[in-house]
Amino acid sequence: MSKVWLITGSSRGLGRAFTEAVLEAGDRVVAGARNPAQLADLEKRFGERVRAVSVDVTSEAQAKDAVEAAIERFGGLDVLVNNAGYGNVAPVEDTTLEEFRAQIETNLFGVIIMTKAVIPYFREREAGHIIQVTSIAGRLGPVGRAPYAAAKFGVEGFSESLSRELGPLGVKVTIVEPGGFRTDFAGSSTELREGRAEYDSTVGATVRFQRSYNGRQPGDPAKAAAALLQLVSMREPPLRLLLGSDCYAAAEKSILSTLEADRRWKDLSVSTDF
């Protein structure tokens, strides 16, 4: 059966790949973007099955309007994909509080705002699927991306709580965690600042790697989109889904390292009980 999707950040990167794949599969989409004119080609190709709307995810009014647009245009809404976001690279010391707030506002509060806009409708229907696109940075803190990681860790915790609240009501929640994909996320979408000399071996190295890595990432956006379509077809989808061999390897290494450290300090941890 054809589904109705609302996808944020649809104009580029993974969001664009998701939107195209969903439309090619025969579903209908409200495609959100800051500049919906960038989606004109999709409206021309897919006609009445796509509606491009202006969505700043930090705006409660625009979030509500996007949800209402889906219901009014297509008669309902089945899947929300919170994909919009960005992440710059710079040392914490050289990142202003305004820059921190801006990244967290978009990457965390934008997800919360969009999610809250759709919850009443999904709750009343006792159905729906909320997909939160985070990152491997939602599992481990990469050098140079502290604001981004802070936001993505926040989305992970928010979404885990959300899944426990909405699961009994018939609403599904899945956290999708991509690694490196060949989009412009690591290129024109990202500001790279090496910072002062003291950070040359850490943040500086990350910036240099990012520049050389762009265009060579292992992830194929089309295959990520295919995985997303498979995910929404599942009766019992996972709470978390890693995307990419690099992402899986990094997550596995981090989890095992954390477990080892927790066990090493277990005696001190449990010594605090009465």
Rank of each mutant, 00 (worst) to 15 (best):
G87I: 01
A31D: 03
I7V: 14
V173C: 02
L239N: 04
P237A: 15
A226K: 11
G26K: 11
V133G: 00
A17L: 04
V30G: 05
A150E: 02
R123S: 10
A21N: 00
S59V: 10
L239H: 07
Q132D: 02
A197D: 15
K253T: 07
W5D: 01
I175Q: 06
R51N: 03
D246V: 13
V111N: 06
R125S: 02
Y86K: 01
L166V: 11
R45T: 13
Q132Y: 01
G15L: 10
P147M: 08
L140F: 09
Q230L: 06
A249T: 12
L23V: 09
P168S: 07
T134Y: 01
M114Q: 08
L242H: 02
Y248S: 11
G215I: 13
E43A: 15
I136L: 10
A146V: 10
A197Y: 15
K253R: 14
A61P: 03
S271M: 13
L239F: 12
F122T: 06
G110R: 08
A117F: 13
I175V: 08
P142T: 13
F274I: 12
D78V: 15
R182I: 11
G144E: 00
T272I: 15
G26R: 11
D220I: 06
V79D: 03
I131A: 09
E160Q: 12
F18G: 01
G219W: 09
V79A: 02
K253W: 13
V111P: 00
I130G: 01
S189P: 08
E236F: 15
Q230D: 15
I119R: 10
V53D: 01
A149G: 01
R49D: 06
S201C: 03
D184Y: 07
M114V: 06
G215K: 12
D262V: 15
A52C: 07
E165D: 15
N82G: 04
G15D: 14
T174G: 03
L42A: 03
V29Y: 09
S2W: 05
N107L: 06
R34C: 09
V232M: 12
E68S: 15
N214R: 11
R51C: 05
V207M: 02
L228C: 03
A150C: 07
P178V: 04
F209T: 10
